[in-house]
């Protein structure tokens, strides 16, 4: 696990030429595991984890790297899901890739609108405004005819990718979803480690100071918000393809809460945290749903969450990083 810390050091060393770092090795191992996984575990379950990991990573980009707590990210997930679902269901033969692109763009447009309204407020007010806007979208999705209200969109065809790959095959679809996830993860990683990401960090650490350095911080926050919304939309669009379903559950505030839980559990402000958090939550839901516990699942998840937050506040990955940092300090001495 020492590799996680090395990420920071590699980033800090800056001018050092590119070489193989332990973190690079970890990413490679994870990548290979991702390639092999569908032959060991059920692909749909894995795809569910990947979709939620992407959703949580998008959310974490905003909370972890700008310090903005959005309580309405379900709106972007659902917008991506519904647009993609509607297009693929209404226009059979449409490329699934185009459907996903359209869903993502829809979330980007909505994110620009919501962001412009919400970004001027901070802290709890920002959270409340995003929640209110997301609730508005929820009721819009109930009323709008194209979503089929309470029923949702069922049986969305997965179609053929580039007219070659039949996505009805779970394994084929898995690799498509995996490619989307890897690309999105790489994008988030780049955003965090970019000139733009540096300004975001500065805003997170001390916004008045960033302003006094001449940065128009609202503009930076808006760009980050739109990126986050777009990636959340991408997660929703992909999810529609996996489950062939877009429903109101995607738009409800439970979904906005769940993504917060996943991110905090895994480690807010860490790149791998959301991946670990969503894997854990989805895995637990899956395991507990199969047991005889029934509706107690939510209670148990809640209890686990409380214990985690009380005992390790910075999340699983965050705690690992701190542990490594402490150990390295001792070694330095």
């Amino acid at each position: 696990m020492a590799v996680l810390q090395q990420d920071h050091q590699a980033a800090r060393a800056g001018s050092a030429p590119r070489r193989i770092t332990p973190l690079g090795v970890l990413y490679l191992v994870l990548f290979l595991l991702g390639l092999l996984a569908p032959w060991v575990a059920y692909p749909v379950f894995l795809m569910k984890i990947l979709c939620f990991a992407l959703f949580a990573s998008a959310f974490n980009l905003l909370l972890g790297f700008v310090g903005l707590l959005s309580f309405g990210h379900a709106a972007f997930l659902a917008t991506g899901a519904y647009i993609t679902g509607f297009l693929l269901a209404e226009y059979p033969g449409l490329s699934p890739a185009l459907g996903i692109v359209a869903g993502t763009l829809g979330a980007v447009v909505l994110g620009t609108l919501f962001g412009a309204l919400a970004i001027r407020r901070q802290g709890i007010y920002f959270a409340m405004i995003t929640l209110a806007l997301a609730q508005m979208m929820f009721f819009f999705f109930i009323q709008a005819p194209f979503t089929h209200g309470e029923d949702g969109l069922h049986g969305v065809p997965r179609g053929e990718l580039f007219g070659v790959f039949d996505l009805a095959n779970n394994h084929t679809l898995y690799y498509f979803v995996f490619a989307i996830f890897v690309a999105a993860f790489a994008l988030i990683r780049r955003v965090v480690h970019s000139p733009f990401g540096q300004v975001l960090k500065a805003i997170r650490e001390n916004e008045p100071r960033a302003i006094s350095l001449g940065y128009h911080t609202d503009a930076y926050k808006l760009v980050a918000f739109v990126l986050s919304a777009g990636l959340a939309g991408l997660a929703g669009a992909t999810k529609t393809l996996v489950f062939q379903l877009a429903s109101l559950g995607d738009a409800s505030w439970h979904m906005s809460g769940e993504v917060i839980l996943m991110t905090l559990l895994g480690g807010v402000g860490t790149l791998l945290g959301p991946l670990v958090g969503s894997g854990l939550v989805i895995g637990l839901q899956h395991q507990l749903a199969q047991s005889a516990l029934g509706d107690w699942v939510s209670v148990i998840l809640g209890a686990i969450f409380v214990v985690c937050v009380l005992s390790f506040r910075s999340g699983i990955i965050g705690e690992c990083q701190r542990w490594i940092a402490r150990r390295q300090q001792r070694e330095d001495k």
């Binding site: 780049r190 970019s194 000139p195 733009f196």
Partner: peptide, 8 residues
Amino acid sequence: SFHFWKPE
């Protein structure tokens, strides 16, 4: 400073 696609 807005270039989120450039490396650090």
